[in-house]
């Protein structure tokens, strides 16, 4: 599915008004999403499904519960690991990376 089709524009019950678009980075690549939506929803809309690689066997993981319960969606945001992509809000310029296992030791922000 192309990203233009993945966002719902017409719905019989709901309205999804246009919101402010912001640019962010996924694995170094620039993508666009709506400001304030969860990172996971912006990534999903951009066609990214694998967010995390499991600790032991490196199996791909995406989100599962989407409400912060299951930790299936952990990513590294601006160098900080173990951020739940399904609850963390998207901000302009965010650098998001796939987390492998427990992720890197957190970098302190300059």
């Amino acid at each position: 599915m192309e990203s233009s089709d993945i966002r719902i524009k017409q719905h019989p019950i709901l309205d999804f008004p246009e919101r402010r678009k912001v640019k962010f980075y996924w694995e170094g690549k620039q993508l666009e999403g709506y400001e304030g939506e969860p990172i996971a929803s912006a990534l999903h809309a951009a066609g990214v499904k694998v967010l995390h690689k499991s600790l032991k066997r490196g199996r791909p993981r995406g989100f599962f519960c989407a409400i912060g319960n299951c930790s299936s969606c952990l990513v590294v945001v601006d160098g900080v690991p173990n951020v739940r992509a399904c609850t963390e809000k998207l901000r302009a310029g965010m650098r998001v990376e796939m987390q492998v296992g427990v992720g890197p030791v957190p970098r302190s922000k300059e």
Binding site: S54, R59, G62, F64, C65, A66, I67
Partner: peptide, 11 residues
């Protein structure tokens, strides 16, 4: 069942 694309109904 752990593949991305397997989602809970709530999600």
């Amino acid at each position: 069942n752990d593949l991305p694309g397997v989602y809970g109904a709530g999600a």
